[in-house]
């Protein structure tokens, strides 16, 4: 029993395919970077609209955030990959298709912009009203107040929370294998089809994710502590 256990858990098979798996990890990182950029951009606009003076903007952006916070990422991914191209084709009356990579980036970016917009809103609302009033009394325009007083302070306060959202986003990139983006899980499944030895392969993949994510959370904790000591966050 223990001999079979040792053999089946022998991670050398995983090590043999290290370059394939690392190429998968690179795909995870590409998807992560692109969707993080998209999520951040959308979240800034949505978060700002949520504290806007215009009621319509507030309602719209709250609806957006609630909608995407409550949609499962997988459902969104499948919807973007299968349904969205057809809808756009009908709209443009021309053939339109999304590559798996683009669909993944779009779905994850939009999904996480919902979560991040909450963080942005909380960050902006944590800036005391007096700062805005002080800016107004100095004759600054609303845009200047936003740019020079509110946003720089809000970003510092948002950082730790936003970074942990990004860690969740990285975890979520593991589902892109399901629309055939060649990420870690996709590569591992392919190797498994070849070798028929799921034990070392899936255990290795789980450990690899564990390693990457624990390293990320630990460094974020250290950074956040440092920022707190400097009085940033």
């Amino acid at each position: 029993m223990s001999e079979t256990l040792r053999q089946s858990l022998d991670l050398s098979l995983f090590w043999e395919y290290r370059y394939t798996v690392l190429a998968g990890l690179a795909q995870n990182i590409y998807v992560f970077l692109a969707s993080a950029a998209l999520a951040l951009t959308l979240a800034l606009f949505v978060g700002l609209s949520r504290v806007s003076r215009h009621r319509a903007l507030r309602i719209l952006s709250t609806g957006y955030a609630e909608l995407f916070r409550n949609t499962p990422e997988f459902v969104l991914l499948i919807w973007v990959y299968y349904v969205l191209p057809i809808l756009i084709s009908k709209l443009l009356a021309a053939k339109f298709s999304l590559s798996p990579f683009l669909a993944a980036v779009l779905a994850l970016g939009v999904a996480y912009s919902g979560f991040l917009s909450e963080t942005v809103r909380a960050g902006i609302q944590s800036i005391p009203r007096g700062h805005v009033e002080a800016g107004l009394s100095l004759g600054m325009s609303r845009f200047t107040i936003l740019r020079r007083i509110v946003i720089p302070q809000a970003i510092r306060r948002m950082l730790p929370e936003a970074l942990s959202q990004f860690v969740s986003l990285f975890k979520a990139t593991s589902i892109v294998s399901l629309v055939a983006v060649p990420d870690i899980m996709y590569q591992v499944s392919m190797i498994n089809v070849d070798q028929m030895r799921p034990l070392p392969l899936y255990t290795g993949a789980a450990l690899l994710f564990c390693l990457v994510i624990i390293a990320a959370t630990q460094s974020i904790n250290i950074l956040s502590d440092r920022w707190r000591k400097r009085g940033w966050a």
């Binding site: 589902i175 994710f209 994510i213």
Partner: peptide
């Protein structure tokens, strides 16, 4: 907490 749900599922 550190492994994505799909990884755990397949594992």
């Amino acid at each position: 907490r550190a492994t994505p749900i799909i990884v755990q599922l397949l594992w």
